[in-house]
Design a protein around this nucleic acid. Sequence first.
DNA 1: TACTAAATTGACTAATCAGTCTATAATGTA
DNA 2: TACATTATAGACTGATTAGTCAATTTAGTA
Lengths: 196, 196
Amino acid sequence: MCQINLHGVILKEKERKILDASLKLFVERGFHGTSTAEIAKTAGVATGTLFHYFKTKEELINRLYLYTKESMLCESSKHYDDKKTFKENIKELWLKFVHFGINEPYKFQFILTFHCSPYITSLTKEQVETHAEGMLGIYKNGIQKQKIKEISFEMIMDYFWGNVVTVVTHFEKYPEKLNEKNLDMAFELLWDGISK
Amino acid sequence: MCQINLHGVILKEKERKILDASLKLFVERGFHGTSTAEIAKTAGVATGTLFHYFKTKEELINRLYLYTKESMLCESSKHYDDKKTFKENIKELWLKFVHFGINEPYKFQFILTFHCSPYITSLTKEQVETHAEGMLGIYKNGIQKQKIKEISFEMIMDYFWGNVVTVVTHFEKYPEKLNEKNLDMAFELLWDGISK
DNA sequence: TACTAAATTGACTAATCAGTCTATAATGTA
DNA sequence: TACATTATAGACTGATTAGTCAATTTAGTA
């Protein structure tokens, strides 16, 4: 459900093609390494059409950021489930991100590369809730139940996200190793690190 | 000792200034986002001088990669010390990388950003030994002494390096949190993850 | 000193860039 | 149908780019 619209706005077909072409090219060659002419050509539209939908190249990358980040977050918006153990709750969230990274490598890489870049305005960043939302509930719960170490929320957050990135990158590098057993082992590295 | 020369070749002063200016600008604005004119201006030389030392912009970034990566590796070339415990050995290596990242944020960020970029040729990558060298000895030792989990070397390597990146990035974001206690806690996250 | 090679300069160039503009086609609406 | 709005196209433009080149200075050597 959460695929063709962005903040509730349905994307036109050519707009979509431009975003998809940009995603591929920005990841492969970077922002300045990709010309608007190349994007238009890859998307199969004229440059005029590109600038009809996106006023500037910067607006294009900002809209692309919203597009990719929402695509990731809508996969992982679930909240804490009391019927499952604490560890299972964390693992579920972890797996959602890891699967997103594996199934959508371009979107994942784009978020990684550009979430700290100067082209993405702070206004854009404010428009998407961070992936911290899901984690905050889990963190409070974990501290309260004394399941996780007494480490600051910021540290756990960065550690959790860093672990997701590591694991996704690892299985991208060694795709033949991707199976449930290795995925479980990778999660244990994280879990044994943060749990008491 | 290992600062002004590169593969034993001593750098001329202007060559040095060009590399330093490039490092700053490439990290801040990216490869294509930085013009050779800007680099020359920042370095205080003419564009002709830049192209006298570096045939092309690509050669410049490749030499810069060698320069930064050697700068990192020469800080951490020590081998396994049997007088210390296994954990202490790992921690020492870990701290070397973390300190490098904190003390040389531009070099660290440059390596992070460009080690997977298409501008760095595979020939260049072959010229610097990977940071795997120091780790391999530790890994074999750890498996043999049954101190670490039975996980593939590649996974442990990626996990170790991912952790270094996470920790450096974290303390860059929250510099007020940088102290020995928090550094120790950060290491425990890694250690408890990989140790049996 | 006299000669050579290397270092340094900055004006210059062909190519490429983001973005514009005018014309035309498609779509919606009354 | 008649009219207005939106979508699409691609040639075009002024600015910027990586890299060149001829002229000049500096450094090394005999």
